[in-house]
Design a protein around this nucleic acid. Sequence first.
DNA 1: TTCCCGAGTGTTTGCGATAACACTCACCCC
DNA 2: GGGGTGAGTGTTATCGCAAACACTCGGGAA
Lengths: 346, 346
Amino acid sequence: MTTPSHRGDVPHRPKVAVMEDVAELAGVSAMTVSRVLNAPEKVRPETRARVLAAVQELGYRPNSAARVLVTGRSGVLGVVSFDTTQYGPASTLYAIERAARQNEYSVSIASLDALNRKSISEGVGRLTSQSVDGVIIVAPHESATDGLRHLPPDLPVVAVDAGEGVPFPVVMVDQHAGAARATRHLLSLGHRTVWHLSGPANWVDASARIAGWRSVLEAEGREVREPLAGDWSARSGHELGRRLAFEDDLTAIFVANDQMAMGLLRALREAGRRVPEDVSVVGFDDIPEAAYFWPPLTTVRQDFATVGRLAFQLVLDRIDGVLGERRLKVEPELVVRESAGVSPPG
Amino acid sequence: MTTPSHRGDVPHRPKVAVMEDVAELAGVSAMTVSRVLNAPEKVRPETRARVLAAVQELGYRPNSAARVLVTGRSGVLGVVSFDTTQYGPASTLYAIERAARQNEYSVSIASLDALNRKSISEGVGRLTSQSVDGVIIVAPHESATDGLRHLPPDLPVVAVDAGEGVPFPVVMVDQHAGAARATRHLLSLGHRTVWHLSGPANWVDASARIAGWRSVLEAEGREVREPLAGDWSARSGHELGRRLAFEDDLTAIFVANDQMAMGLLRALREAGRRVPEDVSVVGFDDIPEAAYFWPPLTTVRQDFATVGRLAFQLVLDRIDGVLGERRLKVEPELVVRESAGVSPPG
DNA sequence: TTCCCGAGTGTTTGCGATAACACTCACCCC
DNA sequence: GGGGTGAGTGTTATCGCAAACACTCGGGAA
């Protein structure tokens, strides 16, 4: 005798307990249950105990949608990011999630297929329509920076590694300083100048690393060779490496990330140039494998965990109406291993 | 003359448009607006146009919390995972997000700090309390498998790479077949037996790879050396490699993942053993860098993208009440490069 | 004693959307 | 011409929770 509806296939939803059920079991009103959960000190201890027992017995869990509807707060943080299969973004995301969890927030993600204004604001849109309380954007591309200028102004937003001129706080590793450190390290080993294998155009960290590298060379009055741009992959490092391997004034090279450095290392070896005896190489990132490259890679460590943690702290402040720092820089660290050595004689 | 409340710091919430506002502007009822958004064909074209214009003008976006409350559907998928900084899990997550997005779902994540029953069900709990429609679990550890038996039975759940005996669908790469393929490849090159550097105990894929490797050796009547267990890291591969490098019947070794293979390669080189002339090495995963190892790594490619896509499809089916496959296997592929060669003359 | 106060609890209302049902036509059939 | 029909729209109830306000006491001040 069931009504001929489409519910035929969902015989009997085993209705989950709601606040009213708990209230009834505990012999109080729903409001008291709500108070036990949100402001326990306002409820007499023995009442509280009864309510908690009822919660336990029924396996009650508050319905977040209802709570969001009435409070306007979701406890969800959105993260917009590009290519989280890469070590850097993945680590940042992981650190954000961890920090969020410790603060009773959960994380919703929106990956981007492309880096441009439209894509970014669409990603943010996907998140805001899920009523996130705030958004962290991990998309270190200049076109993104542009998209970031046109976001809902009342939404708490923090960017990781964004360029200048975005209207909200930015957390970043000091790429410029890191690149400078790498370059100075190579010069200090006696090299006359340092080549650069850069990241792709329009990536803010690629640009910052180029700038850091260049500034040191210029300050020291060294020759500045045009950087060659890869795409962060080992493949591109290898390809560009083959073109560089026969430059005979190449004795030192700073590579914009460790994967490209790996490709370069291989190209150099294939060309018969020994590292570090003939050519010194310094990378960037310090991926966990860098110490097991051949030879072990001297590189610049980025502390993604700290970046993620700080980014979370900053959105949290914004959500709470606190206006904190506008630009937080995390110091990178040069990790000296064996891929960079003293300049070969003459 | 503001009331002395804590709202002092939030002067005037610039109230966003709700459905009623749109209705008013378009001169219709809220119900009609709702229909335009959810079942446009039920509304006369000119009315629809008026409503859409009003939506546009007010920048109206439906409030998802209200919608979830009444429909019981959130359009959010939860993903529970462990260590998304690793290439495999990260790629799987990425593919899931992508598939979800194409189906108008968004993704909420819950990372795990530890792999055990408590941790898993807590992770699922964090997600369900955010009212996700379904959950995908990417936690290929046997202790997890245990935790998975005690989840809310009405929740649509799909696991990636889970062991046998979990009460819901599982998508996995056929690790056993992949390991067998790698092992057979090495035997076919003339090696008398194949050593194995395995993943850590209790990881389901580590166990499956051991089983696959062992089954081939046994079928061929070859000697089975006790596998050495690493922890997936290059560091552990290096460390174990140092112990193995001087075994003189070591001519071929199958390593449970590419990172460990990298560490092993370095250890072998440090011990003066050439790859592939003295020792042949086959890895597992085919991370993007594998082709740029020294030498380029022969390995087994896992198609994480397909795994992610299938896992999403399976939860989606479950959410829609369709009971699909219980165990879906994705075939891995042997990628032959240069790290494995013919057995050195006895 | 009377009154006030505040701790503890209950009642009512509303958050923003959709489901279910009710209504109004214009149209077509016999 | 009466009445069925169905497309298009409106009305009401409801989802589960918390904010705001109302109520009930017992204890202390006046």
